[in-house]
Design a protein around this nucleic acid. Structure first.
Length: 298
DNA sequence: ACAGGATCCTGGGGGC
DNA sequence: TGCCCCCAGGATCCTG
């Protein structure tokens, strides 16, 4: 689970072509969504979304952003266990009469109609989230897609896939641990716990190393490693350590390529040592004590 | 300024 | 079998 940049990117690439130009013709907002997930009133959400057309679907960091035809913008963050699932609806159905087609963790359903002259079947977008850390915002009358009034999205750092080396170096230049800085979304958008650990291993840097203690060579290795592990994650459709699935319900396979995350006690893929796990910034952190020696500025 | 902890939340696993 | 407790962590808030 744990949707990070590669998981969100996989979802966005999957749903964008399928949602483009579709109109929201109906919706269900269930009670838990009101209490936890939806960051506006159900009435407001309904009024702001109904009969609007999805202009595009983009990703910023771990956020999914959908501008609508009325200049409102739908923003989704999947939290830890959130899922966006698309289901084709074969025939016209009364949504309220078919509540059994989703479980108790599906909190919001949008019915989406294709508007072309030879229309494709209706699609339902299901927002499902067992742990309910996910959020859905509706930004009204957005005049700048790059400055949406959503907590976390304002002040989001440069996207980890595209960040320049110099910017990355500046972001790491502090007394905090490398792991902590990699997770800081205001410095670097998109990296979470899994890819932070994988990037540190790939760069042969101990996650506890302070940013200011990194050599120029280490900084460049880490910058390169972040991009590399994220691209690998996208290539394999994300990591499915427990219940992350793409919009089709397919599991990613990057977890089979993790080199440290989730491999506590297993043999390092590069030496004879064994992967250890510690807590850094409150997050479980996996590393090889031989490959990632602290203070090694080689 | 930064680390560390609590908070939100529920499914799953271990222990008894 | 079942119950209790703890753990997982993205983002935010609070404290030291």
């Amino acid at each position: 689970m744990i949707p990070e940049l590669p998981e969100v990117e996989t979802i966005v690439r999957d749903i964008r072509p399928r949602l483009l130009g579709r109109m929201v013709t109906g919706m269900i907002i269930r009670s838990k969504a009101q209490a936890h997930i939806l960051k506006t009133s159900p009435d407001n959400f309904y009024q702001g979304v109904i009969l609007q057309t999805i202009q595009t679907v983009i990703r910023k960091g771990k956020y999914i952003i959908m501008p609508l035809s009325n200049d409102n913008v739908l923003v989704i963050h999947l939290g830890m266990t959130g899922q966006v699932l698309l289901h084709e609806v074969p025939d016209v159905v009364d949504l309220e009469d078919h509540l059994d087609r989703f479980d108790k963790h599906t909190h919001v359903v949008l019915e989406l109609m294709d508007q072309s002259s030879d229309p494709l079947p209706d699609i339902e977008l299901h927002f499902r989230d067992p742990r309910m850390f996910g959020n859905i915002w509706l930004v009204e009358d957005a005049n700048d897609i790059n400055n949406l009034d959503v907590p976390g999205l304002k002040g989001l750092g440069p996207d980890a896939l595209g960040i320049e080396l110099d910017t990355f170096k500046r972001s790491m230049r502090n007394r905090r641990s490398v792991k902590s800085s990699l997770l800081d979304q205001t410095k670097l958008a998109g990296v979470g716990n899994i890819y932070a650990d994988e990037a540190c291993f790939s760069a042969k840097i101990n996650p506890l190393t302070k940013g200011i203690d990194l050599s120029p060579g280490q900084l460049m290795r880490l910058w390169f490693a972040v991009k590399t592990v994220l691209k690998e994650g996208i290539k394999y459709g994300g990591s499915s350590t427990s219940d992350y699935v793409s919009a089709d319900g397919n599991k990613g396979s990057y977890q089979d390529h993790h080199r440290v995350y989730g491999r506590l006690g297993q043999k390092c893929v590069e030496c004879d040592d064994v992967i250890e796990r510690i807590k850094v910034s409150g997050r479980s952190t996996h590393f090889c004590p031989s490959c990632q020696i602290r203070g090694d500025s080689s």
